[in-house]
């Protein structure tokens, strides 16, 4: 057995959607249809399977792999802007930003990381309506701090979180 290189997890930022499922609210990845489980880590899987029609596709492998784009992504706070809608609306899915713990196999890139295992560490949720307040309560079932933020746009939530961090 090989000893890991580091003991402490990487702490980075990412964006999710908080999806109102009716009975509960869950975190969902923005790019892929991946729901983040409660109380246990999300484990990365590569969805690139060998395709008999396209012979150049990659074979199945453990995620994240060098030379592939698979893995659980996270970056610095300033890298989140392109992944948030300009203006937020009270809907079944609300953009959320927060810190995430990354561990296992980590590929470090210039602006962020790809990891094999992850779990949210803290969440910042825009307060848009009564539904948002319920979603915030339900997101607390992840067992991590969930902070409401009075923001209706990407610029506002990023500014508000930056201000909180600087305080």
């Amino acid at each position: 057995m090989i000893a890991p290189d580091y003991v402490e997890p990487v702490v980075a930022w990412r964006a999710w959607y908080a999806v109102d499922g009716g009975l509960s609210t869950s975190l969902s990845s923005i790019v892929h249809r991946a729901t983040w489980p409660r109380g246990e880590p999300l484990v990365a899987k590569c969805h690139r399977m060998r395709n008999v029609i396209w012979p150049f596709s990659r074979s199945k492998h453990e995620a994240p792999a060098v030379g592939c784009r698979c893995g659980i992504y996270a970056g610095r706070l300033e890298t989140l802007r392109p992944y948030l809608p300009d203006y937020f609306v009270a809907d079944m899915a609300v953009p959320v930003i927060g810190r995430v713990l990354l561990w296992g196999v980590i590929h470090e890139h210039e602006l962020g990381w790809r990891a094999s295992h992850a779990y949210p560490q803290s969440l910042y949720v825009p307060t848009l309506s009564k539904r948002s307040e319920r979603m915030i309560r339900e997101l607390r079932s992840y067992g991590v701090p969930v902070q409401p933020v009075a923001a209706v746009s990407a610029e506002e939530i990023l500014d508000a979180v930056s201000t909180k961090l600087a305080a």
């Binding site: 580091y6 296992g104 980590i106 590929h107 470090e108 602006l111 962020g112």
Partner: peptide, 19 residues
């Protein structure tokens, strides 16, 4: 998510209880 060019790879000890 655009995270730029790959720099290095390493391993981190598993987090037993992330909550």
């Amino acid at each position: 998510m655009e995270i730029g060019k790959h720099k290095r790879t390493y391993t981190v000890e598993p987090v037993r209880d992330p909550i």
